[in-house]
Design a binder for these strands. Sequence first.
DNA 1: TCTGATTCTGCTTAT
DNA 2: CAGAATCAGA
Length: 760
Amino acid sequence: MSKGDPILDSLNAQQYEAVTAPELPLLIVAGAGSGKTRVITRRIAYLIRDCGYFPWQIFAATFTNKAAGEMKRRVCQLLPHVPEHDLNIATFHSLCARILRRDITVLGYPLSFTIADERDQLSAIKHVMRELGISDKEIKPSYAQDVINQCKIRMLEPSDVGQVVQSRYEEQLAAIYEAYTKYLHGSSALDFEDLILMTVKLFTEHPEVLERYQARYRHVMVDEFQDINESQFTLVRLLTAGHHRLTVVGDEDQTIYSWRGADIRHILDFDKYYPERLLVHLEQNYRSTGNILQAASCVISNNTERFNKRLFTDAPQGAPVLLVEAETERDEALAVAELIREIQMRLRLPASEIAVFYRTAALSRTYEEKLRELRLPYRVLGGVRFYDRAEVKDLLAYLQVAFNPHNTLSLLRIVNTPKRGLGDKTIEKLLRRARERDTSLFAVMEEASQGGIVSPSATTALRELVEHIHTWNKLASTLLPSELFERIRNDIDYDASLGDPNQMEVRSRIENLDELHRSIVAYEGETYEPSLQGYLENVSLYSPTDELRDGEEAVTLMTLHTAKGLEFRCVFIVGCNDGLLPHGRSVEEGRLEEERRLFYVGMTRAREILILTYCGHRVYYGEPRYDFPSPFLNELPAKGVLRVDASRTNWARLVHALGQSCFAAEGEEFELSKTKEEERENVRSTVRPAVSRKVPAELVEGRPGRTDLLGKRVRHPLIGEGIVVETGGTGKDRYYIVEADDGSRTKFMARFAKFEVCDS
DNA sequence: TCTGATTCTGCTTAT
DNA sequence: CAGAATCAGA
């Protein structure tokens, strides 16, 4: 190890081994906070500097653009003479898009294909279902979407599926899949899964193309390998088939995308695919305090689908993990906001070092409200997405059409926006004609604009639109994307079509469009060779973490999923309630362990302060409902966790105390217990979150120990006191009929019932 | 063909 | 509660 070497210095023994390992298939099992990014970036730099690789010969796949950007930046820091655009570090989807942009024509797609996001996908599915005469009562479009995506992940094409259908239902699904595929092809569009699938197809059906890429990509790296799905893994195996030069980094405890096809087996059984593989474990955690790591390890030790890893740290114990119980959701949010204020003030943590994580995006609202009330700056990652707003989608659709007029999906969106008298009837007629002649909607529109096919007024409108599209399509290759954007916006008078600009609503929409324009300009500024195609691709593959800019002074709110790969000095995980954090749907589908991993991912993002919160009841669907604490909270160790009741806590004093324990650092090594049994011993089994005393378990349907309320006297905020005179139904349909003292009867659904049993 | 109003239905998670 | 689908009426 030479002194002053930025690539090989200041690595621990395991990290050094991983960075400099020989070029056999290498599996790096990297626990949370163990310097994974550091290792992978240095290995890339090491291969380039010391092993004779050109930067572009390394194919490095990540799962988010943010991670890719960060990795590129750090590699370039290590190798100042390497320009960023020489590196092939990107998400699987972008890397595949790049390959397809070169070579997709052999699969019968034009190079100018467009990328359909999941909303486009859903509307395409609805569209073909309508054509097939399948109502969305019979098959939910979102279900069909799920099935189609699952098929694509497993690389099953419509023809494969068509042969194995067993029921009328499956037959219909197969028919939708087939029609959808045709429809997409007709629009020259690829959905997200197609990006991977088509690349796999390209490689398997055209070995000469594969050989070219195998020769180019001499080494393949995969970050977050635990989240790889079958088609992605197939792609990796194809690319490395000849040489097996492959480095993968992952942590099976952080698999959180199995619903998207991620399969934990790929990492657990890596040696089955690559028997000669080398294995390096990174087990020292450099991120979190002892208490945080201890708590997280304790929780994750309850999982069975994992290697038996033991993470350790040299860091001091630090402050205890805080577990806050609140009465209602709003109390919970208020507690969080007040804690944030105190932490900023008393512990001098900058807002950018504080994050709030939740399981579902819908939860952010209450927290936003309270943060606003206390005037604490915040930002929400991936909330109502900017790119999902109607006006933004409209203009983007125009750009899509300018880029590729045969993109029917986008064309349908804009054909009558702004209104130009091309109603449903006309469009249906044109679509039918397009289907009959097996051409695109745009081709039929061109034809119809000559007259004789649709009504005279529609013909005029069509002619004008078609001419515009021709013009924009020509301009697309000469103007900058931002110039084309303004041109289109003017040509169609879009701003004026929104209505009176004095209205707040309209003004904010116009501002959004200005913002969109700025984002295009920004793209042009930071891109090597800006193009309309490149910009549209950026937008399609955009992810919530891309919004994260360093140094912005605001508390960050995001879902647990988007939190992966990030770290903050202070982390809140809110809504730690049963049904929400192990999410009910996930548990139903048998993914409890994945929910636990999600919780673990959240916990291990925290460096110094970790605060978990839950509440006694919250509002669902506008109705209040009792909520139980998350079962994961019972898996926390007794030591190093402080439980407090929000209604009786002086936050200022508590935070002050936290600060004391934070900075009372002792240098002694903190190692976690080695076995699951030892870890379990740390868990006091009698620990029950205090809220259970407030929630009468018998009132919640489906809970063990529920007693029948028939004949009991109850109190309800709406009707006052009354007697349960009748009960019936099962599961979530269970109801109680309560006769109030004035003789009136009211029916309550058990799952929403918010009454208390009266004594006596 | 367009509009506003009303009913209906459904909250994971995201490249 | 909120977005989507549907419907009445101009």
